[in-house]
Each structure stands twice: as C-alpha cells, then as structure tokens.
Amino acid sequence: MGKLDGRRAFITGAGGGIGAAIARLFAQEGALVALADINGPLVAETAAGIAGGRAFTVDVSDRAAVHAAVDDFAGEGLDILVNNAVAFHYAPLTEMPEDIIDRMLDVGIKGTFWATQAATPHLVRRGGGSIINLSSVAVSFAIKHAAVYASIKGAIDTFTRQQAVELGVHGVRVNALAPGAVETPGAGSVIDAEGWEKRRAMTPLGRLVTDREVAEAAVFLAADSGASIAGVTLKIDAGITIAGPR
C-alpha cells in the first residue's frame, strides 16, 4: 500500500529538479500525477518515465493556461497541488533589470496564486486535500544578491499561512516546504562550485539536501501523516537555518 494510493496530484515546475523528484515519489506512493512545466520537451520526457504521469506544457504566469490545465486534469478529481515553479536570478538589486524582476514575480507569486485559485474548487469538491508551496531558507537569513528571490519566498510563506486559515474550513491543508541548498539545474544556474561548497560548510550536518529528501517531506505533508498540519513551513535544510550564515 502506498501512502498516496488513489490520490491525484498536480505539480508545477515538474520538468526537472525538485518538482520532478516530487512527481516520481508521489507516483511510487500510488498517486496519479500531472506534471506541469514551461519546458514542453523536458516535462514530456519526465512524465514518460512515470507510470500514469501526464505532462502539461504550461507557463504558470498565464492564468488562463493554468486554469485550463488544472481543470483538464482535475475533471476526475484533485487531492494535492504542489506549487513548485520558480524563476531564478541572483544579482544586486541595483543591477536587476525590470523584465527579470517581473518574470520572477510572475512565476513565483502569480503562478502560485493562479494554480491555487484553479485547484481550490476541485479540492473543496473532493472534501479536502493538500496544497504544498515551495518556500526557501532564504526567508530566514540573508543570501548575497538574493533580495528578489527571498522576497518572493517570504510572500509565499505569508500566502501559505493565509490560505491555511481560509481553506482549512473546507478540509484543505496548506503548508510549505523550505529546502536548504539542493543541487538542481535551476539552482545551478545561479550558484557556482564555490557557492555550493560554502553552503555545505554552513550546515551543521556538513551536507547538502537532496531532491529526494524534499520529495519525502512533500509525501509526509500530503499523506495521512500530515492530517493535522496546516499553515506550517517545514525546513529541510541540514540545519543551515539554525546555524545561520557563518
């Protein structure tokens, strides 16, 4: 018996990295998963390797497209939404172009809003479910050149708490995961080898986090094990938050 047997999950930013890891583990635990990503070929390839996986090519900043994809998949029910899509760029705020900031805000905040907006009626009709938003340890302490990214993730934490109250009365549990340093292609676009080593040295456990570990935490929140957890941001960070920058 899988921990998510018979449940249906829609996951954004699932072409690779953490989103793909969550999709794979959800499927292994018995869920039917929909993988949404702006990179069509990548998400199709990832979904093809998952039993029953369905791929949706979606720009999460496009409200109509997100609603259409969620409605398509959720026609037979929806139990879990994972808001994982993100746009990365690290730079001093004074050097951040407006178009990049707009893109980060559109994907990181609006994309989360639109997917949640689309999924909520389906979850309520199902009698409840789980929404998991991806936050970051960048909310807890300053990371060089990450002002925009950290601000977006701070907004996600606030949104998580707000929605946990609003949707809890309908049996929908809303929580967030805040991973520490996870070596994914997306993170690798803004963190070099020296940066990874610095982050590893900052953790009390002396190691980075794996995408599998983040996926396991997502299963914990989505399954019956998380039945009484709402409005929480769970850190999976090898202790980097409690240690702080050193």
Results as ranks from 00 to 15, higher is better:
residue 210 T to N: 05
residue 179 P to C: 15
residue 215 A to N: 07
residue 165 V to S: 01
residue 162 Q to C: 13
residue 71 D to R: 09
residue 115 A to W: 03
residue 127 G to D: 02
residue 67 H to G: 15
residue 244 G to Q: 04
residue 124 V to K: 09
residue 177 L to F: 03
residue 16 G to Q: 15
residue 229 I to F: 04
residue 130 S to I: 04
residue 46 T to M: 09
residue 87 A to W: 09
residue 231 G to T: 07
residue 156 I to F: 00
residue 184 T to W: 03
residue 182 V to G: 01
residue 57 T to H: 12
residue 38 I to C: 15
residue 222 A to M: 01
residue 12 T to Q: 07
residue 127 G to S: 03
residue 100 I to T: 15
residue 214 V to R: 00
residue 161 R to D: 03
residue 162 Q to E: 06
residue 79 D to S: 08
residue 213 E to V: 02
residue 240 I to A: 09
residue 99 D to T: 14
residue 120 T to F: 07
residue 244 G to A: 08
residue 190 V to R: 01
residue 245 P to M: 06
residue 45 E to C: 07
residue 228 S to P: 01
residue 35 L to A: 06
residue 204 P to V: 06
residue 117 Q to D: 13
residue 184 T to M: 00
residue 8 R to W: 00
residue 61 S to F: 07
residue 39 N to A: 15
residue 28 Q to W: 10
residue 203 T to A: 11
residue 192 D to I: 12
residue 163 Q to L: 14
residue 236 I to N: 01
residue 30 G to K: 11
residue 3 K to S: 13
residue 58 V to I: 14
residue 135 S to H: 00
residue 169 V to R: 12
residue 53 G to F: 02
residue 10 F to P: 01
residue 101 I to D: 08
residue 194 E to L: 10
residue 1 M to C: 13
residue 114 W to S: 00
residue 217 A to W: 00
residue 35 L to D: 06
residue 53 G to N: 08
residue 77 G to E: 09
residue 223 A to Q: 06
residue 172 V to E: 00
residue 4 L to H: 07
residue 20 A to R: 13
residue 234 L to N: 06
residue 170 H to F: 11
residue 214 V to H: 02
residue 19 G to T: 12
residue 123 L to S: 03
residue 4 L to W: 05
residue 109 I to F: 05
residue 170 H to Q: 09
residue 91 A to I: 11
residue 20 A to D: 14
residue 101 I to A: 14
residue 42 L to I: 15
residue 116 T to F: 02
residue 109 I to C: 01
residue 114 W to N: 05
residue 243 A to E: 03
residue 104 M to I: 14
residue 14 A to Q: 01
residue 68 A to W: 10
residue 37 D to F: 05
residue 107 V to E: 03
residue 120 T to R: 10
residue 99 D to E: 15
residue 72 D to I: 06
residue 36 A to S: 13
residue 6 G to E: 14
residue 184 T to N: 02
residue 38 I to A: 15
residue 86 V to Y: 08
residue 11 I to A: 04
residue 196 W to V: 00
residue 11 I to E: 03
residue 150 A to P: 06
residue 126 R to K: 13
residue 42 L to P: 09
residue 183 E to W: 11
residue 118 A to P: 06
residue 5 D to A: 15
residue 233 T to P: 03
residue 7 R to L: 14
residue 210 T to I: 12
residue 235 K to T: 08
residue 61 S to C: 11
residue 233 T to N: 07
residue 120 T to W: 02
residue 108 G to V: 12
residue 159 F to I: 11
residue 118 A to I: 08
residue 241 T to H: 01
residue 84 N to G: 08
residue 118 A to R: 07
residue 152 I to A: 09
residue 127 G to Y: 04
residue 101 I to S: 11
residue 91 A to W: 12
residue 33 V to P: 01
residue 43 V to F: 08
residue 109 I to Q: 04
residue 145 H to P: 07
residue 26 F to E: 04
residue 27 A to R: 01
residue 205 L to F: 12
residue 225 S to M: 14
residue 70 V to Q: 07
residue 195 G to N: 03
residue 93 L to E: 07
residue 3 K to T: 12
residue 66 V to A: 09
residue 60 V to E: 08
residue 178 A to D: 05
residue 47 A to K: 02
residue 122 H to R: 08
residue 35 L to M: 12
residue 164 A to C: 05
residue 46 T to P: 11
residue 86 V to G: 08
residue 150 A to S: 10
residue 109 I to M: 11
residue 127 G to E: 07
residue 233 T to Q: 10
residue 201 A to Q: 13
